[in-house]
Design a protein around this nucleic acid. Sequence first.
RNA 1: GGGCGGUUAGCUCAGCGGUAGAGCACUACAUUGACAUUGUAGUGGUCGUUGGUUCGAUCCCAAUACCGCCCA
Length: 918
Amino acid sequence: MPMTAPLAQSLSTTEANPDSRPDTRFSPAAVEARWAEAWEVGGCFTTRLDAAEPFAIMMPPPNVTGTLHLGHALDNTLPDILIRRARMQGKAALYQPGTDHASIAVHVVLEKQWAKEAKEKGQKALSRFALGREKFMEQAWAWKDYSHGQISSQLRKLGISCDWANERFTMDAAYVKAVNTAFVQLHAQGLIYRGQRLVNWDPKMQTAVSDLEVTHKEVKGHLWHVRYKFENGQLYNGNDGIEIATTRPETILADGAIAIHPADPRAADLVGRTVLVPLANRTIKIIADEMVDPDFGSGMVKITAAHDFNDFAFYQRHKVAHNIPLINLMNPNGTMNSNCPADYVGLDRFKARKKIIEDIEAIGQLIKVEPHTHNVGHAERDDTILEPYLTWQWYAKGAPLAAGCLQAIDQGEVQFINARDQKVMRHWLENIEDWCISRQLWWGHRIPAWFKGVEGEAGFEVKIQEAAPGPEFGEGWRQDEDILDTWFSSAMWPFATQGWPNATTARLAQFYPNSAINSGRDILPFWIMKMLMMGTQLMGQAPFKTIYTHGLILDEKGQKMSKSKGNVLNPLELMEKYGTDALRFTMASIASSEDMRFSEAKVEQNRNFCTKLWNAARLLQMNGVSYNAEVAKEFHLRILKHPINHWIVGKLKKATIAVDMHLDAWEFNQATHHAYHFTWGTFCDWYLELTKPMLAQGDEVAEETRACMGWAFTYVLGLLHPFMPFITEELWQKHTAAPQGHFLMLQPWPDVHIWPIDYEAYGHTTLLVEVLTLLRQARTQYKLPPKSKLEIFIRNAAPELLSVLQTNAAVLNTIVGVETLTPRTQAAGQGEAMLQAAGAEIILPLQGLVDFAAERARLGKEVEKQQTELTRLQGLMNNPGFTARAPADEVAEKRSREAELQAGLVGLQALLDGPYKV
RNA sequence: GGGCGGUUAGCUCAGCGGUAGAGCACUACAUUGACAUUGUAGUGGUCGUUGGUUCGAUCCCAAUACCGCCCA
């Protein structure tokens, strides 16, 4: 007989067509696209700008460098869960979307593209300098449009509920205005200055990068030992010169001094003498300084102030006393410049190194070469070996900006979800250096500074202002060619997105400071610290109240995901295969401040969870249960009679409280744990099983149960909605009696605190569940045929236990096959098994089914186990320290457990000594 | 060299003062019944080591070993 006929009769009125009976599996693809659009069209994402309590989080703006990866999925799912809950709680929830122009990263992307295209055509790769600034910017904007389109469509697919109407890009006109204003203000406050010093220079991109963007890597190189001769063939202690070891021989041509440790025994003899720089034939002084490590190399080092950070510091200490030259040997692209002898001019820095070694060897001054491993700075973005390089740059003063942040932290204005972040942040702030904020790139915010004359020379002038200097300032002004570090603009994200510097915008007043910020721990110093600086300085208040960071997503083997390793998982593919809800739930369930191992198996597990939920809905539907807003509204908890219905209300309340508590604490993994186990383990495995016989009764119990099930499931959907928006919306809409244009997404969050709970009824059901569990165990253990029926007895049962078991005779029958349950006073005898449950003895007549030896062994083990626990408890009770000092409920609890064990042991022992005696 | 973490079941991880939990894996049984993307039951751990605090320590403190990340 086909299933559909009887089913159709039991369908709820809203689902009259039998053909629309849902399949046993949830098909996410169509459903997701439909709701993503309906929510947006239905205005669900629009931020309330009324007096509601604000809850604002700024999206960490993805770089417009391509498409999103799993890290983005995590970064956006977590805040979206809180935002969706806040929206349901009736708050003015704002998840501020937007993208970051990602200056150097976009430069790298474009250059890679050109290199690829050129290779295909067999041509030489284009450089941005050949293209020119204007054409370059056109290409960059085109790329931005492409990447932005990808990103926003992916975020929509992820179900991220942000206020798209207010989306921002860090290079929008209004944002540019904000950045310029910030630069001018910070300069006026004396926090930005121009300085000439060594920077980390990327010769490939031809720009400065900040200290934080330098990755130190171990590189296998060499240590070249070179003889520096004394002038005119002089000898000291029989030597015609000194030995200097260097890892960078190409800088020899710029040597300005030799340094030796003052405590070095040779120092007395050598300090103050001069030596000849090989090949250059200039004389330089030997100077004492404690920076030298006497145990490294030859114990003396050459000083090349324009090409080494330590040497530059040495230069600052000694330049006045010793008139040390500061020689720059390189062009911005890493080739040797005209300060070198003609033979070297124009050579690439690494070719020059090779040639210099050859030339020094040719004149007999190369003593030896040793292999040597050392740390070399690489550019984080393009992996080029960086060059310490002398340039003029703009700097932001670290210390005063950090002071404001430290004050905000000290005063508790900002809370760190992860205590360690506060330690790390303090460490950064307390050891801060000035921040190089200018970059010699094009894609970004051109610095609002105007120059006249040659920098470093007399008559040079600078003006800091948003517009070009007018004619009243005379001719010859030019705007600084440089742009700002990307982090300068993203540091303003919490307020520049809300209308700053226009201080009167309602959004700014409502949403600043933001409620929280969320990001990967890896950008704590880049972004979160910079936002703290800008916020405290420009807004006078920390930009957010809560800081949450998470670790990195690793693959299932604990390795970093990377294209070269081929272990990258694409969120879009996972969403297609398992559904967005499964991916979102997985993200929340693995969220951690530590690095997280991600695996497809976890997504699969959560896809199964979706299937479970889907089929639970099917069961309700097949039983004529409606679950929707109307049912929920008309349902009155106070009129509930049946203890099992009271029980599920209590369980749902407990689960919701737990989910709320963990979400408040940003403990997403714990929140999903409670939501998952309540839904699957309590609601589906127990409640939906317990209610089957209740519904079959067809009386007022069935009626009440049907109503309660529908009510409870409505709230289960609400509870799960922030984690799994699509499937929950689909199920809710499928049967909802709510008017058109209503969404689960906008339903009130379960307000469980007003739910009355009948704890007595709840407790009785707990007893019932305990008995059912024991009987299930017994059925397995005694290998009872699955469909066999039992006639059992109960002894020493408390009246409430007896009552709940008798009330639920149908449940006992359906779930554990108990046909009759009869109280009796006689203990278990021959051929009977005894189970201890809820303080009573349940007796199963199992004539012929019990292996007496095995049963004796089991009971013996049980006695042993209980005896061990009893002994421990008795020890505790005899310990006056415990009874006197432990909390009273703790003592009372142990005491009652002790009594329970004692009674139980008597029963077990009686069985062993009586019917089970060998 | 400095800073910050981690070490709990075969694997991945929760828990964090009253001698331990989940998912996966594994074992047994079940399957016309919402769901085999299933159900029921079970196996599996001296919570890295050593001290200390405490009536009581996986949990707090200290030392130590190993592993990891960040900075220099």
